[in-house]
Amino acid sequence: MTTAPTPVPTPAATDTSGGPGAPATASLAPAAARHRRALGGPWAAAVPLLAFFAIGFGLPALAIVTGAFTLSSDAESGAGSFTTANLTDSVQGAYWTALLSSVKLSALTALVGTAIGLPLAQAVVTSRFRLVREAVLTASGVLANFGGLPLAFAFVATLGNAGEVTKLFHLTDHGWSLYSFTGLAVAYLYFLVPLMVLTITPALDGLRRQWREAAANNRATTVQYWRHVALPILLPSLLGGFVLLFGSAFAAYATASAMVGATVPLISRQIADALSGNVLVGQGNLALALSLDMIVVAVLVMAVYLPLQRRSARWLS
Rank of each mutant, 00 (worst) to 15 (best):
T2A: 13
A4H: 12
A12N: 08
D15W: 07
P20A: 15
A22W: 09
A29E: 09
A29D: 03
P30I: 02
R36M: 06
G41F: 10
F52T: 04
F52S: 05
P60M: 08
V65D: 01
T66L: 12
T66R: 15
A68E: 07
A68D: 06
F69C: 02
F69M: 07
S72H: 08
G78T: 01
T83M: 06
T84L: 15
G93W: 13
A94W: 07
W96F: 14
T97E: 11
L99Q: 15
L100K: 14
L100N: 10
S101R: 07
S106A: 15
L108Y: 11
A110V: 06
L111C: 13
V112I: 15
L118G: 02
P119D: 10
A121T: 05
A121P: 04
Q122A: 15
V125F: 05
V125C: 02
V132P: 00
V132Q: 10
E134W: 08
L137S: 02
A139F: 08
G147M: 11
G148S: 00
G148M: 04
G163E: 10
G163W: 07
V165P: 00
H170E: 12
T172Q: 12
T172S: 14
D173K: 10
D173G: 15
G175L: 10
S180G: 05
F181K: 07
G183C: 03
L184C: 01
V186L: 15
L189M: 11
L192R: 00
L195R: 13
I200E: 02
G206Y: 13
L207Q: 09
E213W: 12
A214Q: 14
A216I: 03
V223H: 06
L231W: 09
L238W: 10
V243F: 12
A251Y: 03
T255G: 00
S257G: 04
G261R: 12
A262N: 14
S268Q: 13
R269F: 08
G277E: 06
G277H: 10
L280V: 10
L286W: 06
L286A: 03
A287W: 09
A287I: 08
A289E: 03
S291C: 03
V296M: 07
V296P: 02
V299Q: 07
V301T: 10
